[in-house]
Design a binder for these strands. Structure first.
Lengths: 235, 235
DNA sequence: TCCGCAATTATGTCTGCACATATTTTCGAG
DNA sequence: CTCGAAAATATGTGCAGACATAATTGCGGA
C-alpha cells in the first residue's frame, strides 16, 4: 500500500517513532515483523533491523527472538550522564579553574565503608584529598583512594599540580566502574574545605573503578553549594 | 600476520578494547583503517565497522570521515542512569510498594522557578502531590505539574490509586526531557511528608518533559533519607 | 495428562559488494 | 604565493542472501 520508500535507517526509525508517538502502535502491542516492514518501506531487512535495534537500545521497543518486537510498556527512562573532567566542566562553564592539593598519604586506612568496594589489601592505599576551584571559590572536594597494587605509579605521582582525577584518566585504564549519587550533610571538615555551613546538603558522587576485577580507585566527589548534575534525553 | 579470525563483531570489539587497555594503541593514536583490520581479523569490513561504531558510542574511540579512527584522549566518562517507575524501583528492591495521593489542584500557579521550563500559560496547571512508600515508610515525594493544554485528560484523571508518574508514562508520549539532580535541604512540608528532620539533605530529581516543543509536565522527586542513585558503567 | 524432543520462526549477525558523504590533500589559475 | 576547485580517501550506509540463535510450538511417547 504505502509507497513510503524510506530507504535510510534514520528514516525508518523516525517513521516507527512517529507511529509509536501517535499511538498507532500502542504500548504493549506487537509491531510487524522486520521482513514485513522492509517490504512496506521498500528497503532491506538489514535497514529495518538497524532502526529497530536503535529504538530498542533507546528503550522504546522490546525485542525477543522468535517472539517479535513490541512497543515498550513503560518507556524505560534512560538518561545519559556525561562525566567530564572537573577541569573541563569548570572551563566549559566559562569559569577560571583552580586546583589545590590538600593532603597525600601513602599507607592510608581503608576508606569509609563503601558498598561495592571490597578491597583485598585494604591497609596500604594511597589517599589524596584535593580541592577544585571555580573562579576562586571552592567547587568540588575530591577525596580519593588509589590501590597501589593496581597503580604502582600512584605512590610517586605528583598530585600538586595535576589532580588525581585527571592523572588517573590519562594514565590508568579500567574495565568497569560504579557510580552512586547521594545527598549528604556536610561534616565539619568538608564544610570547612568547601566554605559552607556544617550540615549543608552536599551533592555527593562516589565512583569505584576496577581493571579486570582488581580495584583501581575509589573517589568521593563532594560538590559545593547549589551544584546541579544535568542531562537531557531525546527519545 | 595474525590468524585471529575473530569473525563476530563482539569479538572484534573485545580485541580492539584489549589493545586500547594494554596501551598497544595509546590515547590520541590513530588506529588502523577498517579495511586493514578486516583483513587482519579475516572478517568483512561491515563487521569491523559495527565493532568500532559501538566503541565510539561508548566513548572509547573518536571517528571522523576521511581522517580515520583514533583512541579517545579522555575516555569520556559516561554513565547511563535508568529511570524506572518508582513502583518498579521499590518492587525490584523487594519492598512493598505503597502510594498515597496528597493533593490535587486544577488551576495551580506555576511551579517554583525552574530553569528550562518556560511555560506559555503558566496560570492553569494541574498540580499533584503524592507520596510513594516502600514498606510503609515514605520513599519519594512526587511534586508534579501537568500542562492541560498538552494533556487534556490530566484534569479528569484519577490519581488516587495510580500515580501521575505511572499514568503519564503509559498515556502521554514525549519527545524530549531534561533532568537535573540536586541536593537540597528539606523544607518543613517536605520534612513532614517524608518523616525526616527539617533541613535534612534531600536527593532531588527534577524532570521536565516536552512533546514537540510543547511543555508536558514538570516533576520534582524528593527522595527519602539515604536514597542512592546507582549506575554501573562497563567500558 | 505430562514431559521432552524436534520443527518452526523471528531476530541477530556475517559477507561482499556498491555507492554516499565528509574531509583532506592536491594542484592549477590568477 | 594565495585561493578555490577538483581528486582522493576513510568512514557511513544500503542491499541481497545466507546462516546462527533463541524461543515457542507442537508432536509423540510414556
Amino acid at each position: 500500500m504505502s509507497k513510503l520508500e524510506t530507504k535510510t535507517w534514520q528514516g525508518v526509525r523516525a517513521e516507527v517513532q512517529r507511529r509509536i508517538r501517535s499511538r498507532a502502535w500502542k504500548p504493549g502491542d506487537a509491531i510487524p515483523f522486520e521482513a514485513d516492514l522492509a517490504r512496506e518501506f521498500g528497503c532491506a531487512r538489514a535497514t529495518v533491523n538497524r532502526a529497530l535495534r536503535d529504538l530498542a537500545e533507546a528503550g522504546l521497543l522490546e525485542r525477543k527472538r522468535r517472539s517479535g518486537t513490541r512497543v515498550a510498556l513503560h518507556p524505560t527512562g534512560r538518561a545519559v550522564l556525561d562525566i567530564p573532567l572537573i577541569r573541563k566542566e569548570v572551563e566549559a562553564a566559562g569559569q577560571a579553574y583552580g586546583y589545590e592539593l590538600l593532603s597525600k598519604a601513602l599507607d592510608a586506612a581503608p576508606p569509609h565503608v563503601v558498598a561495592g568496594m571490597e578491597r583485598s589489601d585494604a591497609a596500604h592505599l594511597v589517599h589524596v584529598v584535593a580541592l577544585h576551584r571555580a573562579d576562586e571559590r571552592p567547587h568540588v572536594l575530591e577525596d580519593r583512594w588509589i590501590d597501589p597494587a593496581s597503580v604502582p605509579d600512584a605512590a610517586t605521582a605528583d598530585f600538586s599540580t595535576k589532580s588525581p582525577n585527571e592523572w588517573l584518566l590519562e594514565n590508568v585504564p579500567f574495565t568497569r566502574s560504579e557510580l552512586a549519587i547521594r545527598a549528604l550533610p556536610a561534616d565539619p571538615d568538608t564544610a570547612g574545605s568547601l566554605d559552607v555551613a556544617e550540615g549543608t546538603a552536599i551533592l555527593t558522587l562516589d565512583r569505584a573503578t576496577w581493571l579486570e576485577g582488581r580495584p583501581v580507585t575509589f573517589v568521593r566527589l563532594l560538590h559545593g553549594a547549589d551544584h546541579v548534575i544535568r542531562s537531557s534525553v531525546t527519545a
